[in-house]
Nucleic acid binder design. Sequence first.
DNA 1: CAAGCTAAGATTGTTAACAATTCTGGGTCT
DNA 2: AGACCCAGAATTGTTAACAATCTTAGCTTG
Lengths: 220, 220
Amino acid sequence: MHDNNKQTAAARIFSELQQAILDGQLLPGSKINEAELATRHGCSRGPLREALQRLEGLRLIQREAHVGARVISLSDQQLTELYQVREVLEGLACRLAATLMTKQAKDELKTLLDTHRRYLEEDGQQKYYPQAGDLDFHYLLIRSSQNALLISQLGDELYPLLQLYRRQFRDSGYQQPELAYKEHLHIAEAIMEGDGELAEMLMRKHIARARKRLKYILTT
Amino acid sequence: MHDNNKQTAAARIFSELQQAILDGQLLPGSKINEAELATRHGCSRGPLREALQRLEGLRLIQREAHVGARVISLSDQQLTELYQVREVLEGLACRLAATLMTKQAKDELKTLLDTHRRYLEEDGQQKYYPQAGDLDFHYLLIRSSQNALLISQLGDELYPLLQLYRRQFRDSGYQQPELAYKEHLHIAEAIMEGDGELAEMLMRKHIARARKRLKYILTT
DNA sequence: CAAGCTAAGATTGTTAACAATTCTGGGTCT
DNA sequence: AGACCCAGAATTGTTAACAATCTTAGCTTG
């Protein structure tokens, strides 16, 4: 039995770069210099280019032949597109989760919502927990769909993009914690009752509402 | 102004390999030898590895560090997952298309359906046209959504996978041309009337029906 | 002075060799 | 015979140099 812990250099650089983009160390629109980044991350251009290829697949950077790569910079239009796709995919996740969710995941969901509620009661101004809690809520439902393709598309591709957008537009994505909590509660109830159609519709409304709020903010 | 026709070697190899996989020249499950493929396609391993990276992003191959790449081989479960995701994404495309479709695209759609009908009337046994026609129909609606992310996810990622699945399971995906034509007609009518909600629902039912038929075929 | 050309520099694309890991076949031992 | 080990071969990961393309700064010209 061999230890399989060692990851390849390209994989490590990929993680580091993705983190750097999402953390804001590499700003949207900024040009990427292969030689410089390679030396900074302690490898040659080969593995770095593989990492760039993966980042392009996740739409976090854009490349042009013989010109180079830039961190993606997002338009309002693209943000709308992202929310439209997310809306139907997470709706599907909810519909599936309503049928497939395990007892253990249901308990986890209850605990999550309880914690969320306590934080709201204690201090409505605390924003840091609800943001993380929001992510936890959505990730839990996505995972519960038991659809590997869906989980990958949402978790690996769309959510990193969403995170980048939120940073770029300086949007917490969670500016009405009380309303969001109530919507989460309704979604969870539908799932607990096994009503997939209702859960799907509620999640779609939940995300559509966030999209409309964003649109309102962006156009004013 | 420079001619920008020249594409990079990696891009060319990527296209060739994708085509080879979808054509069945590279069979699902078969191992990919980098050195051999590189020489066969007339380049070194560098560009070839970039192409493999992109293919992995499209989920057409799977790679494992220090072991290598294999063409993906799909389970019934994965086929179901694909159809579930496709169902909601194409539903979204229809909803958007109903509002955004241009006059020109609407004319194109009418022509498409007319041609389809004529082929059915002339010879119900002719399967080759309806298959292509089915693709044309879905692609036209997808493009009409005017959502670049959606178009890319469906056209670049999901449809190639679907094509591979159909080959692997020897399924034309179009075994009831008359029914499919009628469903297409209803979808088109809803779009022409600008009823996005109805168009979305009809498309979802259309794809869900195909998924259930597939499931039935696979379990018997 | 602006537009256009040119050559040098910088950057990306590609290659071939080298390093690290895995696979394979034969041998040994129980 | 079957499990284990080991060395060589094959394959993948990485590197550094080379080739091709783009960019830029300076010069020329009208």
